[in-house]
Amino acid sequence: MRLLMMLMLVSASAWSAEPAVTQKSATIVSAPSQSKLLEAGQVSGQLLQLVLGLLLVIGLIFLLAWVVRRIQQNIPVSGSQQAISLLASQTLGPRDRLLLVQVGKEQILLGLTPGTIVPLHVLQEPIEVSKPEGHLGSAFAQRLAKALKTSAKDEPE
């Protein structure tokens, strides 16, 4: 009987000790899995930040390209002292334009597409093209030309 009591006591202590070991081992096992989850969360957050930054930079490049294209279309080109001058430009589509070109005393209307330049009409009477008033680009161009002329006069020859 004593032997039976001792076996029961030993087995009861073994059963009670086993969950504590299991809890410790579960804690040990769960700690690396939590750190792996935290690392995976950090990596995915960094990846998301990288992708968003890349999209922002690409969007900025497209925005600047659009702004440069708009500015180039609005820059006045008349007033040049060359034999061939561009008097006016009218955008028809994303890549198509009409151009009014003066060659000597003749004015020619040209159609400009990405692959071709087609003369559409030779004008019998020249058209007077006036500069738009209050145009920021032309005011800047006038100030720049004036500054360049004064700096050229100041330099000794």
Rank of each mutant, 00 (worst) to 15 (best):
G104S: 12
G115D: 07
Q124P: 07
W15P: 01
L47V: 10
A20N: 14
L7M: 15
Q42K: 04
L123Q: 13
A145D: 03
Q81W: 06
L56N: 13
E18H: 15
L48Q: 10
G45V: 09
Q49T: 07
M8D: 05
V10R: 15
M8R: 12
T150D: 10
A141S: 00
A20I: 13
L47Q: 11
G45Y: 08
N74L: 01
S30W: 14
G79R: 01
S85C: 07
T113W: 13
R2P: 05
S25H: 06
P19T: 10
V103E: 04
L60T: 14
R2N: 08
Q142P: 10
L50F: 03
S80E: 05
L112Y: 04
G137Y: 07
S30I: 13
G93A: 14
P19M: 10
S44H: 05
A141H: 02
V122K: 10
R97H: 03
A145T: 06
L120F: 05
T116A: 03
K146E: 14
Q124N: 11
N74M: 00
P114L: 00
L98E: 00
L7I: 15
S11A: 15
E133W: 15
L98N: 03
A40C: 14
R2T: 10
V10F: 15
I58A: 08
Q124G: 12
M6Q: 13
R70I: 09
G115S: 11
V77P: 02
A147N: 08
R97S: 04
S78I: 12
T150Y: 01
L54F: 08
T150F: 04
S44D: 12
Q34N: 01
P19H: 08
R70H: 05
W66H: 05
G137S: 03
Q107G: 09
K24H: 09
T91G: 02
S138P: 08
L54K: 06
L98Y: 06
M1F: 10
P94A: 05
E128F: 15
L48F: 07
K146S: 12
H121D: 07
T22S: 09
R97W: 05
G53N: 12
A139V: 10
Q90V: 03
G104V: 06
T116H: 07
A145G: 03
V51P: 09
Q49Y: 07
L144A: 05
P19Q: 10
K131E: 13
G134Y: 01
P114T: 00
L7H: 15
L7K: 14
G79I: 02
L86F: 02
L48N: 09
Q142S: 03
L38V: 14
L52I: 12
N74I: 00
G134M: 01
I84K: 04
L98H: 02
S44M: 02
M6R: 12
A40S: 14
L109R: 02
A152M: 09
A12Q: 15
A20Y: 07
V67K: 06
V67S: 02
I58N: 04
S13Y: 11
L48S: 11
Q81T: 04
G137A: 02
A20P: 06
I117L: 11
S16Q: 11
